[in-house]
Simulated scan of single mutants.
Amino acid sequence: MRFACLGSGSEGNALLVESGKTRLLLDCGFNLRETTARLARLGRSPSDLSAILVSHEHGDHVGGVPRLAAKFGLPVWLSHGTHLQLAAIGQMPEQFHLFDTHHPFAVGDLWIQPFPVPHDAREPTQFVFSDGAYRLGVLTDLGRSTRHIETMLDRVDALVLECNHDVELLAAGPYPPTLKRRVAGDYGHLSNAAAAALLAKLDTRRLKHIIAAHLSRTNNRPGLARQALAQVLACEQDWIAIADQDTGLDWRQLL
């Protein structure tokens, strides 16, 4: 199993996970042209994809999904709540499958364990992917951790973890008070400190890759995110990778 990121942040998100003949795109917040260009950087094209998996209905995660799915005949997997929200605004793809946020399911060679997260969406979900030997946890777009989340992510081999903002930068930054409260609230986004606190509760002995994701351009810095996570893991800061908004993240292999 291997994974790569097309881009991560408020301007668009997409993560590519591969195992065997299965190539699954988690979210797509980029237009078709941009998605195609970003896949090409990873040696892939939209026609290589097996399916699209959607975490929630916010535009930076789902904005590019309907057109990508329609043009390339891709099935889309999503929660019941996300389906209802997209249907209400006329953005539901033609081919779709619904999943229960507490029940695992398979897409080709990938086994997927969804789990609910607190975020200001209809039924937001995050995931653990497995090929039977290794587990990749993905956790972004949530305002706080829960015991269930921590149970799902315990002993993963790789983790993509939201480090959206630095608390002090957000407080002193240009966002209006209402937006600051949303970002920092229980249904907003994880700060560096909150991500580090979550990480400290996990059994990380199997961890081979950790990627800080969904960093705010305005309210965070890569060095601050690296520092927070490296302190928990007692590792060099350079070992913490960053999923960048513009350049994404190159392939990471689980062996």
Rank of each mutant, 00 (worst) to 15 (best):
H58A: 05
G64D: 11
G64I: 13
V65L: 01
P66V: 05
K71G: 01
K71E: 15
K71N: 05
L74S: 05
P75Y: 10
V76M: 00
W77K: 03
S79Y: 07
S79R: 07
H80D: 13
T82Y: 01
H83M: 05
Q85M: 05
Q85F: 02
M92C: 10
P93V: 12
Q95L: 14
L98S: 09
F99P: 05
F99Y: 15
D100V: 00
D100R: 00
H103T: 15
P104S: 06
P104L: 02
A106L: 08
G108W: 04
D109C: 09
Q113H: 02
P114G: 04
P116C: 08
P118V: 06
H119Y: 15
D120V: 07
A121I: 10
E123H: 12
E123M: 14
E123L: 10
E123C: 10
T125E: 09
T125I: 09
F127I: 05
D131C: 11
D131N: 15
G132D: 00
A133E: 14
R135P: 09
L136C: 03
V138C: 13
D141Y: 03
H148L: 05
I149E: 07
E150W: 08
T151D: 12
T151N: 07
T151Q: 14
L153W: 11
D154V: 06
A158F: 05
L161N: 00
E162C: 09
N164L: 00
N164K: 00
D166G: 03
V167W: 02
V167K: 01
E168C: 00
L169E: 13
L169I: 13
L170C: 05
A171S: 12
